[in-house]
Design a protein around this nucleic acid. Structure first.
Lengths: 177, 177
DNA sequence: TGTACATCAGTGAACGCGCGTTCACTGATGTAC
DNA sequence: TGTACATCAGTGAACGCGCGTTCACTGATGTAC
């Protein structure tokens, strides 16, 4: 699936031919399904945000009462997430690439990010829904930044140590622990 | 300069031919100066981290006593920085690309990031130098994540609003304001 | 001071390659009568 | 039930293009004698 390839190798390094071959088709048939590569890109981002948003919501719902934010932070800043960018957060895997896309593409992506936010803001701290939304807009991008920089580290132990420090900070700041 | 082109368009979209032409040379001469494109990439990242680290240090030193962290946060999360990725932070412009580079490249980049951290951790909050370093490792990646997601937004007003919210949060959390 | 030689940054053509996109076509499927 | 036709997903070859890298060569510069 394209959603995985893009997050793993970046959109530029994932050719249409390769993606189509993985689905068992030739690249000529691509344009029966998508208008352009950017169109596929948006669809892939949509799929990825849908999947990871759904998974994250499940994590939050499965947490004991009052511990949803904690569960989200621990899940996001886990070694598993750091080691599997292809199945993980779009922000941490493609953030700057999103920002470089043409306006029309960014507009569509903005809508997708809003949907993700609506899905997860109920599990954020805050008395009003505005507060929860604002916290959502801070927590996920911040964790994404930390995660992407952790992924630069070659050493697994160092990664785990940085993740631990980050979990501690975000739990203290957003989950009152 | 390559450091600017990479941050503006990504490493894959900045060809050696284009970069050389901008310097006034033909692309054949490239390999008299660099072993490979990845080699140039590391040099460009080094240059960019040197420049932005130096500028950030100047901002911190120019701040009134006890307000260095505040000045750093306000400078990093400014509209100017959001609108000029080519001259800004490497993390926010190239983070996930760094993470995808081969091991040897990532090792060299890790060293460059450590140098940046040593330069700026003195201006971070914390009683011990370990605390300041840990805060440095949290603050910059977190702000980078926020900045890169702000850059996705097509609307200038929305960008400014998100930056304001983010400044408020980071100032409260890291500068005790 | 003048000549011979070595160095080496830069040139420009070529290499094989994969890219995004187009297009005339095939061939299976479903619909109409 | 059988025939004629329309639809349309998928094929495969071709398009022009730019990529990273190599290499034989040029030509200016500096050094040695």
């Amino acid at each position: 699936m394209a959603a995985r390839a893009f997050r793993e190798h970046g959109a530029d390094s994932s050719g249409i031919g390769t993606v189509m071959k993985k689905v068992g088709l030739t690249k000529g048939g691509f344009y029966r399904h998508f208008q352009s590569k950017d169109d596929l890109f948006v669809e892939a981002v949509a799929r990825a945000l849908e999947d990871t948003g759904h998974a994250m919501e499940a994590v939050a719902r499965a947490a004991p009462a009052g511990r949803a934010t904690q569960a989200i932070i621990e899940h996001y800043l886990s070694a598993g997430h750091a080691n599997m960018p292809g199945a993980g957060c779009v922000r941490a895997a493609l953030g700057p690439e999103l920002a470089r896309k043409p306006l029309a593409v960014r507009r569509r992506i903005e809508v997708l990010l809003e949907a993700y936010r609506e899905r997860l803001s109920p599990f954020m701290p805050g008395k009003t829904s505005e507060e929860r939304i604002a916290n959502c807009r801070l927590l996920f991008p911040s964790m994404a930044g930390v995660l992407m920089m952790v992924r630069v580290l070659p050493d697994a132990e160092k990664r785990e140590q940085r993740l631990r420090e980050a979990r501690e900070f975000f739990l203290k700041t957003f989950a009152g622990l």
